[in-house]
Amino acid sequence: MGSKVSNIRNHMARVLRDHWWVRQDVPTQMTTPARRQQIAAGARDSFSAGLGIFPLGIALGLLVIQADLPWWLAPALSLSAFAGSLELLLVGMMATVTPLAAVTLTVLVVNFRHVFYAFSFPLHLVKHPLAKAYAVYAMIDEAYAVNAALPEAERSAPRLLAMQIACETYWVGGGLLGVALGAALPAPIKGLEFALCALFTVLTLDAFRSRRELPSVLLAVASVAVAVVLAPSVALFTALLLFVALLTARLALTARRPAKDAAGA
């Protein structure tokens, strides 16, 4: 009997705590129009990413046909890997029947960068387990980037998921279009892949909201400069690793100072 009462009390405490959290950061009691608005906002977020993703998808489809691989490989790769740079790399490896061990190693190295996204990807906004699983599966560079550039108050689960679903649609759709064009078009328009570069430039500007961000940007630029010189073939991965190391050092340095800062202020 006593344990039953305490169970109920625990449950109530949990409910209260959960609701407190909910009201703090996610409006789960979202009304239908508000929800629809968030989904529309997510679709809008995806447009600029789509400018980069869709042409890249077309390039993937074209490449699959040029490499004499079956057409269904384009959508199958987009769904199973869902990581642009890796897919383009894999088409070449599959065409030459690269050993599976080498494929495994390549995937590990090229996609290892996603490990670093977990620190700041707002997965806690997504409550439903299936939606959570999808958000993790669809955490591509572009989805991470578009979301990271948003102010925290404007993020929500419907907005995030709508953007991710849209991005995946662009990928698969672009790939299918590329497959279809593969036979028809002699040479696709050159240079469209620059959209990805433009997208990341714009998102960096958006995330740079105050001078407080300056140290992070400088450390990142230093990391990527060193990485490009020392490890040009795995520059992205090396740069991220260095960046985390430098931030950790920064943390260690600032942790020792707060008392002094407070005294100075």
Partner: peptide, 19 residues
């Protein structure tokens, strides 16, 4: 780290995409 990382990661993605 989760506060400091996003802007830096975006800058790194921008530079590597350009490269």
């Amino acid at each position: 780290l989760s506060v400091w990382m996003p802007v830096g990661i975006l800058a790194i993605l921008a530079v590597t995409a350009l490269r």
